[in-house]
Design a protein around this nucleic acid. Structure first.
Length: 140
DNA sequence: GTCGGAATAT
DNA sequence: CATATTCCGA
């Protein structure tokens, strides 16, 4: 019946209720890297189960049973994995779109130059005024 | 009660 | 920045 723990911790964080995870030792030491093999396994498992259906439990199915690995840890790694993935995709998309736009601009200039060479001056000027962006046909 | 995921904390 | 913990909805 104690406090409901509002979203933001209502100050008073002194009596650390944090429960430290019992270090079951087994293999991991070196606080720096929390097991490399496990990370490898994790990613590999994601490929196995498929990106679409990747869920903590599903991923764990494809990993060697390890008492240290809990669904919560997998879940956390999944979150990180997805975040990185989204970031990569976004970056790729923007760079790709930028490339496309640059290409379009070049195309426009080229077609304009072509028209200048072909047409009479007055006609070209009017064309440019009316239709700055021309649609070109490529069939046959 | 569990599970998955986002939000938040360390 | 990586990992852990918490909150919340199916």
């Amino acid at each position: 019946m104690r406090s409901k723990k509002s979203r933001l911790n209502d100050s008073d964080s002194s009596t650390a209720p944090k429960r430290r995870k019992g270090k079951t030792s087994t293999d991991d030491h070196a606080g720096a890297n929390v097991s490399l093999g496990l990370m490898r396994e994790f990613v590999s498992a994601i490929f196995d189960v498929g990106l679409k259906h990747a869920s903590p439990s599903a991923i764990m199915e494809f990993m060697h049973p390890n008492p240290n690995i809990t669904s919560e840890r997998v879940k956390s790694h999944l979150q990180k994995y997805r975040k990185n993935r989204d970031k990569s995709r976004k970056e790729f998309m923007t760079s790709y779109e930028n490339s496309l736009q640059g290409f379009k601009i070049v195309q426009e200039k080229i077609s304009m130059m072509t028209r200048v060479r072909i047409g009479e001056d007055s006609l070209v000027v009017r064309l440019q005024l009316i239709a700055p962006i021309s649609c070109h046909r490529r069939e046959e």
